[in-house]
């Protein structure tokens, strides 16, 4: 496997595929696109590519759609011989979300995650996560539920502007 100009071009295209659950983010923003390589036996003029994706959660149901979208978009750009493979190591983390991705999340009303760091420790007693409201910017917010509409989000509410909002959890 080698990284070539064609592979780099293909990576740019594959990186623009939107995430099925967070369509304001691309696979590149999310850090799900783990690399694109040109298959060696294909020679320098060939277009046979392997696209590596790293799934988010173990139960993420969107992997098939992501892979199909990648193949579709690359096919439209002339890359017809594309294999999608999953890369599980290193595991995906919210730390892989790019700065551009974090800005897009906030613009869509979803509070971006804090740095994940080590595995989340067991916290007993009241915890104070400092989260700014993506609507009005106030830090006076509270968690309603740690689990939301998708595996990656929690439900929050702003006490200043009274708006509910979602927040992406660190993992």
């Amino acid at each position: 496997m080698v990284t070539t100009l064609a592979a780099r071009h293909a990576a740019e295209i594959a990186g623009t595929v939107p995430d099925p659950e967070l369509p304001m983010l691309t696979l590149a923003d999310l850090g799900v696109l783990a690399g694109v390589e040109q298959d060696e036996q294909d020679g320098p003029d060939g277009q046979a590519l392997t696209v590596w994706l790293t799934p988010t959660y173990s139960g993420c149901p969107a992997v098939a759609e992501m892979a199909a979208d990648v193949r579709l978009k690359l096919g439209a750009a002339g890359f017809t011989d594309v294999r999608v493979r999953l890369r599980l190591d290193p595991p995906w983390s919210t730390d892989l979300i790019t700065d551009a991705g974090r800005a897009k999340l906030a613009a869509a009303g979803i509070a971006p995650p804090s740095p994940a760091g080590a595995p989340v420790p067991l916290r007993l007693g009241p915890t104070r996560l400092l989260v700014d409201c993506p609507q009005c910017g106030s830090p006076d917010t509270e968690e309603l539920s740690r689990f939301g509409s998708t595996a990656c989000k929690a439900l929050w509410r702003c006490r200043a502007c009274r708006e509910p909002f979602e927040r992406m959890k660190e993992i």
Partner: peptide
């Protein structure tokens, strides 16, 4: 599976 599962289970445990 274990590396990612441990992070997920931290939320379950909590």
């Amino acid at each position: 599976v274990a590396v990612r599962g441990a992070k997920e289970l931290a939320y379950h445990q909590e």
